[in-house]
């Protein structure tokens, strides 16, 4: 019953290692420039009014927590990792339909539900790798800079960030069963995650449009709040998890009814 899960996990391994490697290097680079940013950050915070910084989601930029929560996570986790999860999920079913791989798979005694769920379950590979890789580089990087993290906050920023990535994967998997062309499914999911991220950022700058941001995924994951204020928004994370499950349900519903 786990043949597909094993196979899919193996397939995700290479891409996962590449992505994790890239993001780790990127994060390390951020750490290298942190000391020089740190000095300017204090100036930055003095010059700009406080509400402005808050709206940009930048707080305490001169502290390691503020820097990681306001700079590294929004970029590395919310944007890049989010796009990656949506992108690979968008190829899961559409590519197998295109290459006729599904014909062979579904010729065996396996239901379509099982195929889809095993493929999604294989996302454990990038999830584990990304969490471990990033947590390690953050911890080591901070230690090298003579700073230190609250370990609970560090664990929380990863734990509460996981439902966000799953929700992005949910977007991809729905597109994967709805759209016939692999390229289209992947491009749309990539653009969608990017636009959602952009809308969240832009909407927070104007009080009139702030409600629009409530419709974005990243609104429900705030690494700054977790790292700087140690505020753990479990309800928001639960909401993202629910979104993921709903999208997964929709994907199963569509996939079991369509021609392949």
């Amino acid at each position: 019953m786990t043949a597909i899960l094993r196979n899919e996990s193996g397939k995700l391994l290479r891409g996962t290692l590449t992505l994790t490697g890239l993001l780790v290097v990127l994060t390390a680079f951020f750490f290298v420039v942190f000391p020089s940013i740190q000095e300017e950050a204090e100036l930055f915070e003095e010059v700009y009014p406080e509400y402005m910084l808050e709206l940009l989601g930048i707080e305490e930029l001169h502290t390691i927590e503020g820097f990681v929560g306001g700079y590294i996570f929004p970029f590395v986790w919310i944007l890049l990792a989010g796009i990656y999860f949506a992108y690979i999920s968008a190829g899961m079913i559409s590519r197998d339909v295109r290459t006729r791989r599904l014909d062979l798979t579904l010729a065996g005694p396996v239901s379509r539900e099982s195929v889809l769920l095993q493929k999604v379950a294989a996302l454990w590979v990038p999830l584990v790798a990304l969490n471990l890789g990033l947590a390690t580089v953050l911890f080591v990087g901070a230690t090298l800079l003579g700073e230190s993290f609250d370990l609970v906050s560090l664990a929380m920023v990863h734990l509460l960030g996981t439902p966000y990535l799953l929700a992005c994967a949910g977007i991809g998997i729905v597109l994967s069963v709805v759209v016939d062309r692999v390229e289209t499914a992947q491009a749309v999911s990539l653009v969608l995650v990017f636009v959602l991220w952009l809308v969240d950022g832009l909407s927070s700058m104007s009080p009139d449009f702030e409600w629009v941001g409530d419709l974005t995924l990243s609104r429900y994951y705030d690494p700054s709040a977790i790292l700087v204020h140690e505020e753990y928004a479990f309800v928001d994370a639960g909401l993202l998890l629910a979104v993921f499950l709903v999208l997964l349900g929709v994907a199963v519903l569509v996939f079991t009814r369509r021609d392949i």
């Binding site: 791989r101 010729a107 065996g108």
Partner: peptide, 13 residues
């Protein structure tokens, strides 16, 4: 399908 063998025209391995 446990008892069916299938050889498709296009082999998607």
């Amino acid at each position: 399908k446990a008892n069916v063998g299938y050889l498709p025209d296009t082999l998607g391995f």
